[in-house]
């Protein structure tokens, strides 16, 4: 196992982690600030992907596709907040889960009606179809590099907004002690809407960027929602910093599980048995990570509420 291989897998892991972070950040903000469980977050991710794929095919401009994907997803997010989420803030978690689960079902059927049941094979922009030479021995897909850069930019932007703006201050205040923030005169309603729309925007970015790497299909949101939930649990619910660290961890552990566990197993057991156990172990690597973290830090790595 040479160092190039390890570097490449590390980059792969970070790239996946960044995409998870974009989703988890929105999820953790909504959960942390509003104490609201939003299962439909993955649906926003799906809409971002579908809209970007459609615009890309029609306009042949990837930039326009991503922008449209993000903007429309923000609109859908705002609509969702105003019509439904607003009514759920005061309800208990079970109501919230059931209602947002209903949104998933509705959205999936809407997508089926609008785009058909078959997945859309979104294409990467032609200019980014090939590899770039990162190191002499390491050609790396240029599109994955773009995702990496975009993920870092989005994470930085979020960092600046949360830590160095007034809005960010309100968000943090809301996350650590909501009743107190309300008592201090924070207009909670508008902060909530803004936070929800920011979360939608991040999910839209992730969807638009991930579309060409996976495939744009019904249910893609639910598929990625689960690792995103793992991320916010590991990171500590409500903490953006925590979800960033956790997303990197989950991304790297998941990729490493797929890359290193099967060859290691083949060293110690029969090939047929290794082929049985390997993929299964790789699949649960991130859940093992979650279990270990929760053993030592039951509130997650960086709990927002002391």
């Amino acid at each position: 196992m040479d160092s190039i291989f390890i570097i490449e897998q590390l980059i792969n892991g970070i790239g996946y982690g960044l995409m998870l972070f974009l989703l988890a950040a929105g999820l953790t903000l909504v959960f942390g600030v509003m104490d609201t469980m939003n299962l439909a977050h993955g649906t926003l991710f799906m809409f971002g992907a579908y809209i970007a794929a459609t615009v890309h095919e029609a306009s042949h401009s990837f930039l326009a596709a991503v922008l449209c994907g993000v903007l429309v997803t923000m609109l859908i997010g705002a609509l969702l907040e105003v019509t439904l989420m607003r009514r759920l803030y005061k309800r208990n978690h079970l109501n919230q889960v059931v209602a947002t689960f209903g949104v998933i079902l509705l959205a999936d059927d809407f997508v089926k009606w609008m785009w058909g049941a078959s997945p859309i094979m979104a294409s990467t922009p032609a200019a980014l179809a090939g590899p770039v030479q990162l190191l002499p021995d390491l050609p790396y897909p240029s599109y994955r590099l773009l995702i990496l850069v975009a993920g870092v930019v989005a994470a930085l932007a979020l960092y600046v907004v949360v830590n160095h703006t007034r809005l960010g201050m309100l968000v943090r205040a809301g996350a650590s002690d909501r009743p107190m923030a309300e008592l201090m005169g924070v207009r909670v309603q508008s902060v909530f809407t803004l936070v929800f729309v920011i979360g939608a925007a991040l999910a839209g970015v992730a969807g638009a960027l991930m579309g060409p790497l996976t495939s744009v299909q019904i249910g893609m949101g639910e598929g990625i929602l689960i690792p995103a939930l793992v991320v916010i649990v590991i990171g500590g619910i409500g903490s953006v910093r925590g979800s960033f660290v956790a997303a990197m961890l989950v991304g790297v552990v998941d990729t490493a599980g797929r890359a290193f566990v099967p060859p290691l197993l083949r060293e110690v057991m029969a090939p047929a048995l290794a082929a049985d156990v390997g993929p299964a172990l790789a699949g649960i690597a991130m859940y093992v990570l979650m279990a270990v973290v929760l053993c030592f830090k039951p509130g997650g790595l960086f709990p927002a509420r002391g």
């Binding site: 190039i4 792969n12 790239g15 897909p141 994955r144 790497l213 996976t214 990729t255 890359a259």
Partner: peptide, 21 residues
Amino acid sequence: EEIYTKLGQLDYAAELATIRV
């Protein structure tokens, strides 16, 4: 190499790196 992935997996970054090596 004999690699098995999850059914329905769509991102092969890790597997392609293994194949390259």
